[in-house]
Simulated assay, not measured.
Amino acid sequence: MTAPVPGDPRPPAARPLEAVRADVEAALTALDAVADRPAAEHVAAFERVHTALGAALTAGS
């Protein structure tokens, strides 16, 4: 058995598909509120959703 090396770039364990799916659904649900917000806030909202989707999909790989 080998000891882990500090800074070893091993990927974290993948999360269960159900957890990833829940995170994706939560991110997409956040888009529903965009229609009720001023247009000036849309870009920031889309960026938050994009970040959340990226994190969820990365965690599931």
Rank of each mutant, 00 (worst) to 15 (best):
E18N: 13
L28F: 03
L53Y: 11
H50P: 00
D36Y: 05
H50L: 11
E41D: 15
A55P: 03
E41V: 09
G54R: 15
T51G: 06
P11L: 13
V20D: 07
F46H: 14
A55R: 13
G60N: 09
L28P: 00
V34C: 03
A39E: 11
E47H: 07
D8R: 05
R21A: 12
A55H: 05
A13F: 10
A59W: 07
P38W: 00
A14L: 07
V43H: 12
T29F: 13
R37F: 02
A22Y: 02
E41S: 12
P16R: 07
A33V: 08
A44L: 06
A56Q: 01
V34M: 01
V43K: 10
P4L: 03
R21W: 12
A55N: 08
P6F: 05
P12Y: 12
A59K: 04
P9H: 04
G7S: 04
G54Q: 13
A55Q: 11
A19I: 07
A55K: 06
A59E: 04
H42V: 06
A26F: 01
L28C: 09
P4E: 00
S61H: 15
A44Q: 12
R48E: 12
A27N: 03
P38F: 08
D32S: 11
E25Y: 08
A27M: 09
D23V: 02
A40Q: 15
